[in-house]
């Protein structure tokens, strides 16, 4: 087994926390794991990514181009930078809520249309897109900061994803402060629930 995940987003969204949860869940499950994180300058509201790789044949922390199984995009436009790292048939789990960067507010750049992003993912890269309204789910669970857990819940529903709910919940309790753990676990379950139907339709 080899399973490669790229998490993309903007500094401050919790890209590294999501990676950390996946890593701890893998360790808990006895799966060999290697992760690559970006620290430092990019964490200041810039484009940010993390790689999580699981499996016996995995050595380094970087997902080889064209060998990714899942792109977990916490911000829609940020998914565009990593689609070519995915395999044909791989999953794009897409948080549909954009964060408008300053260059767009300044009128220097247009934010791409969500439909176009999904179109590129399916048509150009042959990815299966699972759109998640993580903001809505998180609000329902009790806090906007739980958006990433909604995304993890969605990931749990993707066929072939090697981690179980139990492992993810264990890792959430380990990584996230106890004050927010319950909200996040609720968001995971709501994320799973909302995703089931979409997954059944496209996989």
């Amino acid at each position: 087994m080899e399973y490669n995940i790229i998490i993309s987003g903007i500094g401050g969204q919790g890209v590294l926390t999501v990676a950390r949860i996946l890593g701890e869940a893998a360790l808990y499950s006895g799966i060999k794991v290697r992760m690559s994180e970006v620290h430092g300058l990019s964490q200041r509201f810039g484009s940010l990514f993390a790689h999580v790789r699981m499996g016996e044949q995995v050595y380094g922390g970087l997902v080889p181009m064209g060998k990714g199984n899942m792109l977990l995009a916490l911000e829609p436009a940020e998914s565009l930078r990593y689609m070519h790292y995915m395999k044909k048939g791989g999953a794009l789990v897409l948080n549909k809520n954009p964060i408008e960067p300053p260059q767009v507010s300044m009128g220097l750049f247009n934010y791409p249309n969500l439909l176009k992003i999904k179109d590129i993912a399916t048509e150009k890269f042959g990815l299966r897109v699972i759109e998640v309204d993580a903001k809505k789910i998180a609000a329902e669970a009790g806090g906007e900061l739980a958006q990433n857990s909604a995304m993890l819940g969605a990931a749990l529903e993707i066929p072939g994803f090697p981690l179980t709910r139990e492992a993810i919940v264990y890792a959430v309790r380990k990584v996230i402060s106890s004050r927010y753990a319950d909200i996040n676990i609720k968001a995971i379950d709501l994320g799973s629930e909302e995703t089931k139907k979409i997954v059944a339709a496209i996989f």
Partner: peptide, 26 residues
């Protein structure tokens, strides 16, 4: 093992559609 040049070119084209998000002061 795979056509890297093609993938890299596709990657460049696609990334170009994403607005640049350089790090910024908080």
């Amino acid at each position: 093992p795979i056509d890297f040049e093609l993938l890299e070119r596709m990657g460049k084209e696609t990334s170009a559609l994403a607005p640049p998000v350089p790090p910024t002061l908080c």
